[in-house]
């Protein structure tokens, strides 16, 4: 799947009525099966951009065109929320900085849960393969609380790939891990996305990690509002303290 962002803006209205622009991305593409690292500091709007691409948040304007092979291109920005949810469940896998696993479910169940909202029957064999691949062959029936932070994140990786997605969005997936774990999780993400043929957008502030991916993008360069966002924020703080 390739994704084309055109003229994306996202603005929030604060409770006091003031409007803040978070995103203003004139153009951004990811090709099918392409691995892209996105570098951005805190507050640069990278999470919002991921949410827009995942269909979790609708942009204020612009289009997010997803080209699924065998389907006419889908503009995620124009879909109603329920359709975006369904599209995300089927085609997009998300990995968060913290694992965001469900505490009451075992590793296996968490992966199966990822298959629950696609309208297709769960593929337990694939789930087992994923967990074996991420090195949790003996930990499938463990609940997240019984797993280490690194193991938890591996389960999260396996879950993101449960539906054989066409696009994997990873938001600082190694941010909470020590360097050795970070390295191996990163390798798993890359190898598994390659295995399923998905495109990967990996957001990180770690330049070394970014170097390991084929293409690198600096969010500050494509998001015209990132500097204004900071200044507007500063201005508001100044106004409040006055």
């Amino acid at each position: 799947m390739d994704v084309k962002l055109k003229a994306i803006t996202k603005r929030y209205q604060a409770p006091d009525g003031s409007v803040t622009d978070v995103l203003d991305v004139p153009n951004f593409d990811i090709g099918a099966g392409e691995h892209v690292a996105m570098i951005g500091s805190s507050g640069s709007g990278k999470t919002t951009l991921l949410h827009v691409m995942a269909g979790i948040t609708a942009p204020s304007s612009g289009s997010v065109e997803c080209g699924v092979p065998g389907m006419s291109p889908v503009n995620l920005a124009k879909l109603p929320e329920a359709a975006r949810d369904a599209f995300r469940g089927r085609y997009i896998g998300i990995i968060f900085q913290t694992h965001h696993l469900l505490g009451g479910f075992t590793a296996m169940e968490n992966v199966l849960l990822g298959m629950s909202f696609t309208g297709r029957p769960a593929d337990a064999g694939w789930a087992r393969h994923l967990l074996e691949t991420v090195g949790l062959k003996d930990r499938m029936d463990y609940r997240p609380g019984k797993l280490s932070v690194g193991q938890q994140q591996r389960v999260a990786v396996a879950r993101a790939l449960a539906n054989r997605p066409q696009l994997v969005l990873a938001d600082e997936p190694t941010g909470a891990l020590d360097p050795i774990n970070a390295r191996s999780v990163l390798d798993l993400i890359r190898s598994l996305t390659t295995e399923v043929g998905a495109a990967l957008l990996l957001v990180t502030h770690d330049r070394e990690i970014a170097q390991s991916l084929a293409r690198r993008v600096d969010l500050a360069e494509i998001n015209r509002s990132s500097s204004r966002y900071v200044s507007a924020d500063t201005a508001r703080i100044a106004e409040v303290s006055r």
Binding site: E81, D85, A86, R88, G89, F117, R159
Partner: peptide, 16 residues
């Protein structure tokens, strides 16, 4: 709340 948000992220619609 967080669990519900996770289900949503995994593709569960509001109606679901």
């Amino acid at each position: 709340r967080r669990d519900i948000a996770i289900l949503r992220a995994l593709g569960a619609t509001r109606n679901r």
